[in-house]
């Protein structure tokens, strides 16, 4: 996993009638037809597919990520409960493939939130009014925000600095880009010991390997 330290980039805000969209679900982030893949790469073509394309398949010029000022935006800003719905990790993979490595919203759904940390994406939770205020500053191609994970700050194009909270353990693993499985396997003896105890205490859960 790639580490996340700092990011300086333009941002794109997902809005509807001037307000940040709440409950942006994983079907909206990447619809089902893009899940039939055995790869993690190349999923940006499915990102927000039904929002970014018209029914005839042509790009919708009104969609924020189709607008020239937001090309290459590395930060996405949205409303409450971002990423609700399915467990599909294709959602963060699609964001990553698009070059989005930071999502700012008032709140996130649990599984999506978790999946972000497994992929080097930083989800930042900030109060709704702060998110709305940030969204208003995403306007131009040179409106760049800076996210500093070590300092836990977002600096706006106007130079204001906003502090955010993050779980210290998750912060560390993002900063270092650690491999979870490699780390866990280092605790192999602890797992062995647990399994021995489990076999003794709940013997009916033992199954024969085929």
């Amino acid at each position: 996993m790639k580490a996340f330290t700092t990011l300086t980039s333009t941002a794109a805000a997902l809005t509807h009638k001037g307000r940040l969209m709440a409950n942006v679900d994983t079907d909206m982030i990447i619809p089902k037809q893009f899940l039939k893949t055995t790869e993690r790469e190349g999923l940006s073509r499915g990102l927000f597919f039904e929002l970014k394309t018209k029914a005839d398949g042509s790009p919708d010029p009104d969609f924020v990520l189709n607008q020239p000022a937001h090309q290459g935006a590395g930060i996405l800003i949205a409303g409450d409960n971002f990423g609700c719905g399915s467990s599909r990790e294709h959602a963060p993979w699609a964001l990553l493939d698009q070059g989005i490595t930071c999502v700012i919203a008032p709140s996130f759904a649990d599984i999506f939130h978790n999946n972000c940390f497994k992929n080097g994406i930083l989800p930042i939770a900030l109060p709704a009014e702060v998110c709305e205020a940030l969204a208003e500053q995403t306007g131009g191609a040179n409106h760049r925000f800076t996210v500093d994970l070590e300092a836990q700050t977002v600096t706006t194009p106007e130079g204001a600095t906003i502090q955010f909270n993050i779980d210290p353990g998750r912060k560390q693993s993002l900063l270092e880009g650690l491999d979870d499985i490699g780390q866990t396997l280092q605790a192999g003896e602890t797992i062995d010991a647990f399994e021995a105890r489990r076999a003794h205490e709940t013997p009916w859960l033992q199954r024969r390997a085929s």
């Binding site: 399915s86 467990s87 599909r88 990790e89 963060p92 599984i111 978790n114 999946n115 497994k118 992929n119 979870d180 499985i181 866990t184």
Partner: peptide
């Protein structure tokens, strides 16, 4: 509960 694919691998 549900998990993502990275967790499936784990």
């Amino acid at each position: 509960h549900g998990i993502g694919t990275s967790e499936v691998e784990h």
